[in-house]
Simulated scan of single mutants.
Amino acid sequence: MVNDQIMLLERAFLNPQAFPNQYYYSHVIWASKSSDQATFPGLADAYTSALETGDWDQVQKHLTIVVHAVESAASTLEAV
């Protein structure tokens, strides 16, 4: 039972739509070694881009994805 929860915990952080231009990458928290950011790569990249362009829609999108992932992960750890 605990192993199932741990497996589901990790899966909660996978979102294939978080990075539509990078089909091989879907982890919301950890970045690939080629990324400039170590954690929350989508949110960090969107924030950096928004500072330059003023387009905050992508920041909101990635923040929503991160919040959903954390909430999903928390629900997998509830006592069964």
Rank of each mutant, 00 (worst) to 15 (best):
M1W: 04
V2R: 13
N3T: 09
D4C: 06
Q5E: 10
Q5S: 11
Q5T: 11
Q5I: 10
I6M: 11
M7D: 13
M7Q: 13
M7V: 11
M7L: 12
L8C: 08
L9R: 08
L9W: 14
E10T: 12
E10H: 11
R11V: 03
A12P: 12
F13Q: 09
F13S: 11
F13D: 10
L14C: 09
L14S: 11
L14Y: 13
L14G: 01
P16I: 07
P16K: 15
P16W: 02
P16R: 14
Q17K: 15
Q17W: 07
Q17N: 15
Q17Y: 12
A18Q: 08
A18S: 15
A18T: 13
A18V: 12
A18H: 10
A18I: 11
F19H: 14
F19V: 03
F19P: 05
F19T: 03
F19A: 08
N21C: 01
Q22K: 12
Y23A: 14
Y23S: 14
Y24N: 13
Y24M: 05
Y25K: 15
Y25T: 10
S26C: 13
S26P: 02
H27M: 08
H27L: 07
V28I: 15
V28R: 03
I29D: 03
I29P: 03
W30C: 11
W30N: 13
A31P: 10
A31H: 03
A31D: 08
S32G: 15
S32P: 11
S34N: 12
S34A: 14
S35W: 10
S35P: 02
S35G: 01
S35M: 09
D36G: 15
D36R: 13
Q37F: 15
Q37D: 13
A38R: 14
A38Y: 11
T39I: 14
F40R: 06
F40A: 10
P41N: 06
P41S: 06
P41H: 05
G42F: 07
G42P: 13
G42Q: 09
L43E: 09
L43F: 15
A44D: 06
D45Y: 03
A46G: 08
A46Y: 08
Y47W: 12
T48S: 12
T48C: 02
S49W: 05
S49M: 06
A50V: 07
L51Q: 15
L51S: 07
E52D: 12
G54E: 05
G54N: 08
D55C: 04
D55I: 06
W56Y: 14
D57L: 08
D57E: 11
D57M: 02
D57K: 09
D57V: 05
D57W: 02
D57P: 01
D57A: 09
Q58T: 06
Q58N: 12
Q58M: 07
Q58S: 08
V59L: 04
V59F: 04
Q60L: 07
K61W: 03
K61Y: 07
H62Y: 05
H62K: 04
T64H: 03
T64G: 05
V66W: 01
V66D: 04
V67C: 01
V67K: 09
V67S: 05
V67Q: 07
H68E: 08
H68F: 00
A69D: 03
A69I: 02
V70G: 00
V70M: 06
E71V: 02
S72P: 00
A73C: 01
A73V: 02
A74M: 04
S75C: 00
S75P: 00
S75W: 01
S75E: 06
S75F: 00
L77P: 00
L77N: 01
E78H: 02
A79F: 03
A79I: 03
A79G: 00
A79K: 03
